[in-house]
């Protein structure tokens, strides 16, 4: 006879929650695909001066593509849901999974690149790029400070010479 204990109920709900979370995570790409499809479909309906159902109109083909994309999204969700739930529950983080720490590092660096691009509009190219390289290499760790400075200055000089002198590109 099975006895229900607090621990077993807790474990049951913990496993269930984990299964739901993993299911949600696995169906996320399909859900995003559906969302993108609907945005495209909506935008196709807004194409100026054209009727949606007129095959010769500008919004017709994007509309058809949006429907195909939505079908692809639905197909992805279904195939993800069909995967063995048990397998989902016991699935350990694989090498291909990104952890929260990975995302934090990636997005921090992305924001840093955006800041560098913003700085190009008010700082000279040479200064902003040298600073960007020095700070980047310093933050990413593992490189000696003098190597960092030499590499940054030499790289910026080469890039500057190549783009501005040889290809006559005017920097911001």
């Amino acid at each position: 006879m099975c006895t229900l204990t607090f621990d077993s109920i807790y474990t049951y709900f913990k496993v269930r929650t984990r299964v739901h979370m993993l299911t949600l995570k696995r169906t996320l790409p399909g859900a995003i695909m559906l969302m993108v499809s609907f945005v495209i479909l909506y935008q196709s309906l807004l194409v100026q001066g054209e009727e949606m159902l007129n095959p010769a109109g500008g919004g017709f083909l994007p509309g058809v593509i949006a429907i195909i994309l939505a079908l692809c999204g639905a197909s992805t969700i279904i195939s993800d849901l069909r995967k063995n739930k048990q397998e989902q529950a016991t699935a350990e983080a694989t090498d291909n999974d990104f952890s929260k720490g990975d995302y934090l590092l990636i997005f921090s660096y992305f924001i840093f690149i955006v800041l560098y691009v913003l700085s190009l509009s008010f700082l000279p190219f040479f200064i902003s790029t040298t600073l960007f390289l020095i700070i980047s290499i310093y933050l990413l760790k593992g490189i000696k400070w003098y190597t960092n400075i030499i590499v940054s200055v030499v790289t910026v000089t080469i890039i500057y010479f190549l783009f501005s002198q040889l290809f006559n590109i005017v920097f911001p």
Binding site: I40, Q43, L69, S75, T76
Partner: peptide, 26 residues
């Protein structure tokens, strides 16, 4: 499905701008 989605989304990106026949913006 993912390959088709990528290609379809790419076509839509290629459609951004003025419609060459109707002249409307897409």
């Amino acid at each position: 499905a993912k390959g088709l989605f990528s290609a379809g989304a790419g076509i839509v990106i290629g459609l951004i701008g003025m419609d060459p026949i109707g002249g409307g913006s897409r």
